[in-house]
Protein backbone atom coordinates (compact mmCIF):
# COMPACT_ATOMS: atom_id res chain seq x y z
CA UNK A 1 0.00 0.00 0.00
CA UNK A 2 1.24 3.51 -0.81
CA UNK A 3 1.72 5.71 2.23
CA UNK A 4 -0.03 9.00 1.47
CA UNK A 5 2.05 11.28 3.68
CA UNK A 6 5.55 10.65 2.20
CA UNK A 7 4.12 10.86 -1.32
CA UNK A 8 2.41 14.17 -0.61
CA UNK A 9 5.54 15.54 1.09
CA UNK A 10 7.64 14.65 -1.96
CA UNK A 11 5.16 16.37 -4.28
CA UNK A 12 5.08 19.44 -2.05
CA UNK A 13 8.85 19.62 -1.91
CA UNK A 14 9.21 19.57 -5.69
CA UNK A 15 6.50 22.25 -6.02
CA UNK A 16 8.29 24.31 -3.38
CA UNK A 17 11.57 24.23 -5.30
CA UNK A 18 9.77 24.94 -8.58
CA UNK A 19 8.05 27.92 -7.01
CA UNK A 20 11.41 29.34 -5.92
CA UNK A 21 12.76 29.26 -9.45
CA UNK A 22 9.80 30.80 -11.28
CA UNK A 23 9.21 34.49 -11.67
CA UNK A 24 9.68 37.56 -13.81
CA UNK A 25 13.37 37.66 -12.82
CA UNK A 26 15.56 34.74 -13.89
CA UNK A 27 17.15 33.41 -10.74
CA UNK A 28 19.11 30.21 -10.39
CA UNK A 29 19.11 28.49 -7.00
CA UNK A 30 22.77 27.58 -7.36
CA UNK A 31 23.75 31.14 -8.15
CA UNK A 32 22.22 32.42 -4.93
CA UNK A 33 25.31 31.46 -2.97
CA UNK A 34 27.59 33.71 -4.98
CA UNK A 35 25.26 36.25 -6.54
CA UNK A 36 24.02 38.84 -4.03
CA UNK A 37 21.20 40.02 -6.28
CA UNK A 38 19.89 36.50 -6.79
CA UNK A 39 20.05 35.89 -3.06
CA UNK A 40 18.08 39.09 -2.46
CA UNK A 41 15.33 38.08 -4.90
CA UNK A 42 15.16 34.66 -3.29
CA UNK A 43 15.14 35.76 0.34
CA UNK A 44 13.02 38.88 0.03
CA UNK A 45 10.50 37.83 -2.60
CA UNK A 46 10.48 34.21 -3.73
CA UNK A 47 10.88 32.49 -0.38
CA UNK A 48 8.35 34.64 1.49
CA UNK A 49 5.87 34.18 -1.32
CA UNK A 50 6.36 30.43 -1.50
CA UNK A 51 6.09 30.09 2.28
CA UNK A 52 2.96 32.22 2.27
CA UNK A 53 1.36 29.97 -0.33
CA UNK A 54 2.35 26.79 1.54
CA UNK A 55 1.12 28.09 4.90
CA UNK A 56 -2.12 29.35 3.36
CA UNK A 57 -2.88 26.05 1.67
CA UNK A 58 -2.03 23.94 4.70
CA UNK A 59 -3.92 26.09 7.20
CA UNK A 60 -7.02 26.45 5.02
CA UNK A 61 -7.20 22.72 4.35
CA UNK A 62 -6.95 21.90 8.07
CA UNK A 63 -9.51 24.62 8.88
CA UNK A 64 -11.78 22.94 6.33
CA UNK A 65 -11.41 19.58 8.06
CA UNK A 66 -12.26 21.16 11.39
CA UNK A 67 -15.27 22.96 9.91
CA UNK A 68 -16.54 19.73 8.38
CA UNK A 69 -16.25 17.95 11.73
CA UNK A 70 -18.05 20.60 13.76
CA UNK A 71 -20.78 21.07 11.15
CA UNK A 72 -20.89 17.30 10.46
CA UNK A 73 -21.21 17.96 6.77
CA UNK A 74 -18.68 17.12 4.08
CA UNK A 75 -19.69 19.92 1.74
CA UNK A 76 -18.61 22.96 3.71
CA UNK A 77 -15.38 24.90 4.04
CA UNK A 78 -14.34 28.18 5.65
CA UNK A 79 -14.95 30.03 2.39
CA UNK A 80 -18.54 28.81 2.04
CA UNK A 81 -19.78 29.57 5.54
CA UNK A 82 -19.52 33.34 5.73
CA UNK A 83 -16.29 33.14 7.74
CA UNK A 84 -13.99 34.81 5.21
CA UNK A 85 -16.48 37.56 4.34
CA UNK A 86 -16.97 38.29 8.04
CA UNK A 87 -13.22 38.65 8.42
CA UNK A 88 -13.28 41.08 5.50
CA UNK A 89 -16.08 43.01 7.22
CA UNK A 90 -14.03 43.36 10.40
CA UNK A 91 -11.01 44.48 8.46
CA UNK A 92 -13.06 47.03 6.53
CA UNK A 93 -14.54 48.43 9.74
CA UNK A 94 -11.05 48.79 11.22
CA UNK A 95 -9.85 50.54 8.05
CA UNK A 96 -12.68 53.05 8.36
CA UNK A 97 -12.89 53.50 12.13
CA UNK A 98 -9.26 53.12 13.21
CA UNK A 99 -7.03 53.36 10.16
CA UNK A 100 -3.88 53.85 12.26
CA UNK A 101 -4.28 50.73 14.40
CA UNK A 102 -1.35 48.29 14.33
CA UNK A 103 -1.55 45.17 12.21
CA UNK A 104 -2.10 42.77 15.11
CA UNK A 105 -5.12 44.74 16.32
CA UNK A 106 -6.66 44.54 12.85
CA UNK A 107 -5.97 40.83 12.67
CA UNK A 108 -7.55 40.35 16.08
CA UNK A 109 -10.67 42.28 15.12
CA UNK A 110 -10.90 40.42 11.80
CA UNK A 111 -10.59 37.11 13.69
CA UNK A 112 -13.34 38.15 16.09
CA UNK A 113 -15.76 39.13 13.32
CA UNK A 114 -14.90 35.90 11.52
CA UNK A 115 -15.76 34.07 14.72
CA UNK A 116 -19.08 35.88 14.92
CA UNK A 117 -19.82 35.01 11.27
CA UNK A 118 -19.06 31.31 11.75
CA UNK A 119 -21.13 31.23 14.93
CA UNK A 120 -24.03 32.78 13.01
CA UNK A 121 -23.65 30.03 10.41
CA UNK A 122 -23.72 27.30 13.07
CA UNK A 123 -26.85 28.79 14.61
CA UNK A 124 -28.41 29.02 11.16
CA UNK A 125 -27.82 25.44 10.11
CA UNK A 126 -29.01 24.08 13.45
CA UNK A 127 -32.42 25.36 12.46
CA UNK A 128 -32.34 23.76 9.02
CA UNK A 129 -34.43 20.63 8.45
CA UNK A 130 -32.11 17.87 9.64
CA UNK A 131 -32.03 15.70 6.55
CA UNK A 132 -31.15 18.41 4.06
CA UNK A 133 -27.44 17.60 3.87
CA UNK A 134 -26.94 19.48 0.60
CA UNK A 135 -28.71 22.62 1.83
CA UNK A 136 -26.11 23.25 4.53
CA UNK A 137 -23.48 24.40 2.01
CA UNK A 138 -26.13 26.30 0.04
CA UNK A 139 -27.14 28.19 3.19
CA UNK A 140 -23.47 28.91 3.84
CA UNK A 141 -22.81 30.25 0.35
CA UNK A 142 -25.89 32.46 0.52
CA UNK A 143 -24.89 33.72 3.97
CA UNK A 144 -21.47 34.55 2.53
CA UNK A 145 -23.26 36.46 -0.22
CA UNK A 146 -25.34 38.43 2.27
CA UNK A 147 -22.31 39.40 4.37
CA UNK A 148 -20.43 40.16 1.14
CA UNK A 149 -23.25 42.51 0.14
CA UNK A 150 -22.90 44.36 3.45
CA UNK A 151 -19.15 44.69 2.87
CA UNK A 152 -19.67 45.95 -0.68
CA UNK A 153 -22.27 48.46 0.46
CA UNK A 154 -20.05 49.91 3.19
CA UNK A 155 -17.05 49.92 0.87
CA UNK A 156 -19.09 51.77 -1.74
CA UNK A 157 -20.11 54.41 0.80
CA UNK A 158 -16.49 55.02 1.76
CA UNK A 159 -15.10 54.64 -1.73
CA UNK A 160 -13.08 51.55 -0.80
CA UNK A 161 -14.46 49.11 -3.40
CA UNK A 162 -11.08 48.57 -5.06
CA UNK A 163 -9.46 47.97 -1.68
CA UNK A 164 -12.08 45.43 -0.61
CA UNK A 165 -11.96 43.74 -3.99
CA UNK A 166 -8.49 42.41 -3.23
CA UNK A 167 -9.82 40.44 -0.23
CA UNK A 168 -13.17 39.28 -1.47
CA UNK A 169 -12.41 38.63 -5.10
CA UNK A 170 -9.75 36.15 -6.08
CA UNK A 171 -6.82 36.29 -3.70
CA UNK A 172 -3.32 36.56 -5.03
CA UNK A 173 0.13 36.25 -3.59
CA UNK A 174 2.08 38.30 -6.11
CA UNK A 175 2.65 41.20 -3.71
CA UNK A 176 3.95 39.01 -0.89
CA UNK A 177 7.45 39.99 0.18
CA UNK A 178 9.42 39.53 3.37
CA UNK A 179 7.69 41.33 6.23
CA UNK A 180 4.25 40.96 4.69
CA UNK A 181 3.47 37.32 5.29
CA UNK A 182 4.81 36.42 8.74
CA UNK A 183 1.39 36.54 10.43
CA UNK A 184 0.52 33.45 8.41
CA UNK A 185 2.72 31.48 10.80
CA UNK A 186 -0.01 32.11 13.36
CA UNK A 187 -2.48 30.44 10.99
CA UNK A 188 -0.05 27.54 10.75
CA UNK A 189 0.09 27.38 14.55
CA UNK A 190 -3.72 27.30 14.71
CA UNK A 191 -3.68 24.35 12.31
CA UNK A 192 -1.18 22.54 14.56
CA UNK A 193 -3.44 23.23 17.55
CA UNK A 194 -6.23 21.54 15.61
CA UNK A 195 -3.99 18.54 15.06
CA UNK A 196 -3.36 18.23 18.80
CA UNK A 197 -7.11 18.13 19.37
CA UNK A 198 -7.68 15.74 16.45
CA UNK A 199 -9.32 13.04 18.59
CA UNK A 200 -11.72 15.51 20.10
CA UNK A 201 -12.80 16.80 16.70
CA UNK A 202 -13.22 13.23 15.48
CA UNK A 203 -15.50 12.43 18.43
CA UNK A 204 -17.42 15.67 17.92
CA UNK A 205 -18.00 14.54 14.33
CA UNK A 206 -19.80 11.47 15.66
CA UNK A 207 -22.53 13.65 17.15
CA UNK A 208 -23.25 15.43 20.41
CA UNK A 209 -24.86 12.38 21.99
CA UNK A 210 -21.91 10.10 21.26
CA UNK A 211 -19.51 12.76 22.53
CA UNK A 212 -21.46 13.19 25.76
CA UNK A 213 -21.68 9.43 26.15
CA UNK A 214 -17.89 9.25 25.95
CA UNK A 215 -17.60 11.95 28.58
CA UNK A 216 -16.53 14.71 26.18
CA UNK A 217 -18.33 18.02 26.56
CA UNK A 218 -19.01 19.11 22.95
CA UNK A 219 -19.24 22.86 23.66
CA UNK A 220 -15.55 23.65 24.34
CA UNK A 221 -14.43 21.49 21.39
CA UNK A 222 -16.87 23.38 19.19
CA UNK A 223 -15.48 26.68 20.48
CA UNK A 224 -11.89 25.60 19.83
CA UNK A 225 -12.85 24.52 16.31
CA UNK A 226 -14.57 27.79 15.54
CA UNK A 227 -11.55 29.68 16.82
CA UNK A 228 -9.16 27.70 14.62
CA UNK A 229 -11.34 28.23 11.56
CA UNK A 230 -11.83 31.93 12.26
CA UNK A 231 -8.18 32.73 12.97
CA UNK A 232 -7.03 30.88 9.85
CA UNK A 233 -9.66 32.51 7.63
CA UNK A 234 -9.02 35.99 8.98
CA UNK A 235 -5.24 35.81 8.60
CA UNK A 236 -5.47 34.36 5.10
CA UNK A 237 -8.02 36.95 3.94
CA UNK A 238 -5.97 39.77 5.40
CA UNK A 239 -2.66 38.58 3.94
CA UNK A 240 -3.41 37.02 0.56
CA UNK A 241 -7.18 37.40 0.03
CA UNK A 242 -9.85 34.79 -0.58
CA UNK A 243 -8.60 31.43 -1.79
CA UNK A 244 -11.78 29.46 -2.46
CA UNK A 245 -12.42 25.70 -2.24
CA UNK A 246 -9.12 24.59 -0.64
CA UNK A 247 -10.78 23.96 2.71
CA UNK A 248 -13.62 22.20 0.97
CA UNK A 249 -12.12 19.83 -1.57
CA UNK A 250 -8.81 18.82 0.05
CA UNK A 251 -10.35 17.23 3.18
CA UNK A 252 -12.85 15.43 0.97
CA UNK A 253 -10.22 13.95 -1.30
CA UNK A 254 -8.02 12.86 1.60
CA UNK A 255 -11.08 11.40 3.33
CA UNK A 256 -11.91 9.36 0.25
CA UNK A 257 -8.41 7.94 0.13
CA UNK A 258 -7.62 7.30 3.79
CA UNK A 259 -10.77 7.93 5.81
CA UNK A 260 -11.32 10.31 8.70
CA UNK A 261 -8.93 9.06 11.33
CA UNK A 262 -8.02 12.70 11.91
CA UNK A 263 -4.88 12.07 13.91
CA UNK A 264 -3.42 10.34 10.88
CA UNK A 265 -5.15 12.35 8.19
CA UNK A 266 -4.62 15.96 9.33
CA UNK A 267 -0.90 16.00 8.37
CA UNK A 268 -1.84 14.62 4.96
CA UNK A 269 -4.63 17.19 4.62
CA UNK A 270 -2.19 19.99 5.45
CA UNK A 271 0.46 18.76 2.98
CA UNK A 272 -2.09 18.18 0.23
CA UNK A 273 -3.62 21.64 0.78
CA UNK A 274 -0.20 23.25 0.59
CA UNK A 275 0.62 21.28 -2.58
CA UNK A 276 -2.67 22.16 -4.28
CA UNK A 277 -2.35 25.89 -3.62
CA UNK A 278 1.33 25.84 -4.63
CA UNK A 279 0.45 24.10 -7.89
CA UNK A 280 -2.32 26.63 -8.61
CA UNK A 281 0.03 29.49 -7.75
CA UNK A 282 2.64 28.12 -10.17
CA UNK A 283 0.01 27.73 -12.90
CA UNK A 284 -1.12 31.29 -12.25
CA UNK A 285 2.43 32.53 -12.72
CA UNK A 286 3.10 30.58 -15.91
CA UNK A 287 -0.11 30.87 -17.87
CA UNK A 288 0.40 34.47 -19.04
CA UNK A 289 4.08 34.77 -18.14
CA UNK A 290 5.53 37.27 -17.26
CA UNK A 291 2.16 38.51 -15.98
CA UNK A 292 0.25 36.67 -13.28
CA UNK A 293 -3.25 35.34 -12.75
CA UNK A 294 -4.21 35.44 -9.05
CA UNK A 295 -4.03 32.04 -7.40
CA UNK A 296 -7.58 32.46 -6.04
CA UNK A 297 -8.93 32.59 -9.57
CA UNK A 298 -7.16 29.38 -10.56
CA UNK A 299 -8.43 27.74 -7.35
CA UNK A 300 -11.96 28.93 -8.21
CA UNK A 301 -11.85 26.97 -11.47
CA UNK A 302 -9.90 23.92 -10.28
CA UNK A 303 -11.79 23.78 -6.98
CA UNK A 304 -15.29 24.02 -8.41
CA UNK A 305 -14.55 21.32 -10.98
CA UNK A 306 -13.18 19.00 -8.27
CA UNK A 307 -16.19 19.78 -6.11
CA UNK A 308 -18.64 18.90 -8.88
CA UNK A 309 -16.82 15.61 -9.45
CA UNK A 310 -16.99 14.85 -5.71
CA UNK A 311 -20.68 15.72 -5.72
CA UNK A 312 -21.53 13.29 -8.49
CA UNK A 313 -19.16 10.43 -7.73
CA UNK A 314 -20.83 8.14 -5.24
CA UNK A 315 -18.94 7.44 -2.03
CA UNK A 316 -19.87 3.79 -1.91
CA UNK A 317 -17.71 1.71 -4.24
CA UNK A 318 -20.28 -1.09 -4.27
CA UNK A 319 -22.59 -2.80 -1.86
Amino acid sequence: MIRPLPVMLAILLSLFVTSLTIGAAQVSLRAAGSDAWAALVLMESRLPRTLAVVLTGAALAVAGTVMQQIVRNKFVGPDTTGTSESAGLGLLLMTILAPDSPVWVRMLVASLTALAGSAAFILLIRRLPAREVMLVPVAGIILSGVIGAVVTFIAWRYDLVQYVGTWLAAGGSSGIIAGRYETLWVAGAAAIAAWFAADRFAILGLGDNVAKGLGLDPAPVMRLGLMVVSVVSALVVVTVGMIPFVGLVVPNIVSRIMGDDLRRSIPVVATAGAALVSACDIIGRLVIYPYEVPVGLIMGIVGSVIFLILLYRPTRPST
Binding site: Q68, R72, N209, K212, L214, G215, S255, G259
Partner: peptide, 22 residues
Protein backbone atom coordinates in the same frame (compact mmCIF):
# COMPACT_ATOMS: atom_id res chain seq x y z
CA UNK B 1 -18.95 13.92 32.64
CA UNK B 2 -15.53 12.26 32.08
CA UNK B 3 -16.05 10.23 35.22
CA UNK B 4 -19.55 9.19 34.23
CA UNK B 5 -18.13 7.92 30.93
CA UNK B 6 -16.24 5.31 32.95
CA UNK B 7 -19.42 4.20 34.70
CA UNK B 8 -21.94 4.06 31.90
CA UNK B 9 -21.88 3.78 28.13
CA UNK B 10 -24.70 5.03 25.94
CA UNK B 11 -25.99 4.13 22.51
CA UNK B 12 -28.41 6.72 21.12
CA UNK B 13 -30.82 6.44 18.28
CA UNK B 14 -30.04 8.11 14.96
CA UNK B 15 -26.35 7.41 14.83
CA UNK B 16 -25.74 8.79 11.36
CA UNK B 17 -22.12 9.84 10.98
CA UNK B 18 -20.74 11.86 8.09
CA UNK B 19 -17.09 11.14 8.96
CA UNK B 20 -15.50 8.41 6.92
CA UNK B 21 -14.28 6.06 9.62
CA UNK B 22 -13.18 2.45 9.56
Amino acid sequence: TEKLALVMAVLSQHTHVSSRLR
